[in-house]
Computed example of a mutant assay.
Amino acid sequence: MKKIVFALLLPILVVASGYTVQAAGFKDVPEDHYAYEAILWAEEYDIVNGYADGTFKPNATITEQQFAKLLANFYELESPYDELKKQTPLANWSDEFYNRLASYGVPLNGYFDNNIRGANVKRGVVAQAISHLVNGKSGLDQSIQFLLDYYISTGQNLQYENRNLQKFFGVSNNMTRAQVVTMLHRMDERNFYEISDYAQKINENMSNASLNTRAKNGQNQLDKTMQLTTPSNSAWNGTYSYYYKWGTGSTDFNRRDAYISNATSKSFTIFMTANDGTAAGSVDGTATITSNTKAVMNKSSNGNRCVLEFERHNNALKITEVDCRKEHDEGTNFSGTLKKQ
């Protein structure tokens, strides 16, 4: 694996006794965090970034599109000449990474749907995607065993050890940012840089298969229990945006973006950002649905108090911040009415 030369590693803070030593300036990653070294490594080689508020959010769940970016960056996969033709045609920041992974036939769910991309990625999907690139075409059990044999990952449910491999590994559990970065760091330590012959042949594409065909084959390679090819029909799910340019300067604008996924009859997952020119912030968490058109979130995924009220309109989402000061920079908030994209 070629290492990226334009490293972005910030100096490690060395401070007096009694203060927390932080990883690359991330105020929520102390030196004694289990993923401290992995996060330093991942930022050094531009595999992962932090948030605008100076945090890394190591315990935040990771979506499939965020995982796709990390995996494509780890292997420095080249972009194909063509692009995926999606069912949701709106451009998405993750398009580049899904195009690159599709050219290698990597097993993922979200190639054709932006909504699926924003859902939390399951441990079983991560296992099959990594094993495909490192070890060739593998079923779910083979992929899990590969990760366990090389201590790239471990099991989560000890009561099933030597009894049920998938339950022991926790295939349906969500993954956190710190967990995924730790897995990639262990791959680096074990010199798993080379792409498997199987994935390489898909990329060489001697049969001239379209990028969509290779992506679909990757989807089908996922274990049936891991496949998520039909998005929820909940009216809450979707991408919402607001942008207003009020002057001619480069910072004379207001922007709000929100992504709602995993909606059920009771709750949904929310990730949103706010940028008011020079001030920016982000927040993610779970909101409770209180009626057909209203919902409320009381705390962020970090456990901080963060009260947001949501009201769903036709093709729009009104968001009102009541108190969420610990989750964004001073000078901005998450309020506004955003149009559904």
Rank of each mutant, 00 (worst) to 15 (best):
Y81F: 06
V106M: 08
I152F: 00
F271L: 11
V296G: 06
F192C: 10
I39A: 07
H132S: 02
V48N: 00
E204P: 03
M226S: 07
G331E: 11
G110A: 03
F253H: 03
E31R: 13
Q159S: 15
V21A: 01
I289N: 09
D141I: 04
L84I: 04
L40K: 09
G285L: 02
S301P: 00
D95P: 02
L101E: 00
F112D: 00
A16R: 04
W246F: 15
T154Q: 04
N217I: 01
E83L: 03
N208L: 12
G136R: 01
L40I: 13
Y34E: 05
N237M: 01
I260L: 13
A52S: 12
Y104E: 12
E37N: 10
R256E: 06
A24W: 02
E309S: 13
Y45P: 05
I289E: 01
A263Y: 00
N203D: 07
L228F: 15
K167I: 08
A263E: 00
S210A: 02
N115L: 15
R163D: 14
S143M: 07
D276S: 13
E43F: 11
M187W: 06
Y151H: 13
I289A: 03
T248S: 15
F112Y: 07
N212D: 01
G110M: 07
I116V: 10
G281K: 09
M297T: 11
N233M: 15
D188C: 07
S196A: 14
F26Y: 15
K86Q: 06
A279Q: 06
T337A: 05
S131L: 02
Q179T: 10
N217Y: 09
N174Q: 09
I47F: 01
W93C: 14
A42M: 01
A16Q: 06
L84A: 04
N173L: 14
F334V: 04
A295F: 03
